[in-house]
């Protein structure tokens, strides 16, 4: 089952591209206050013992490139929601 999500477009922007077995997600934060929320999402995946679940790349101007393995796709968005970076998430 996949997830569908919504977020406040005034605060951030999320785009997705499928790249082989992975999904590349670009996140741009318009509010620097949200950096700590995204950091907590990264910490969540850093603390488990899977290295390739997500790869997290930080670019200048609050832009983030995250390569998410397909089997961690839902978990990633659930964590974004948990850290209040999404306003809504549902199973579709």
């Amino acid at each position: 089952m996949k997830t569908e999500y919504n977020y406040n477009e005034q605060l951030l922007e999320i785009t997705e591209t499928v790249n082989g077995d992975d999904i590349e997600i670009s996140i741009t934060l318009f509010d620097s206050q949200l950096k700590k929320n995204l950091k907590k999402v990264r910490e969540f995946f850093d603390e488990n013992d899977v290295i390739s679940d997500i790869y997290f790349y930080i670019h200048p101007n609050n832009k983030y490139q995250i390569i998410v393995r397909q089997d961690f796709y839902n978990e990633f968005f659930i964590q974004l929601f948990r850290q209040q970076l999404l306003t809504e998430i549902k199973w579709v």
Binding site: D46, I51, S52, Y55, F56, Y57, I67
Partner: peptide, 11 residues
């Protein structure tokens, strides 16, 4: 070193 190596090589 291993996690950051995976990250760089994946990039």
């Amino acid at each position: 070193m291993v996690p950051v190596t995976f990250s760089i090589t994946r990039q």
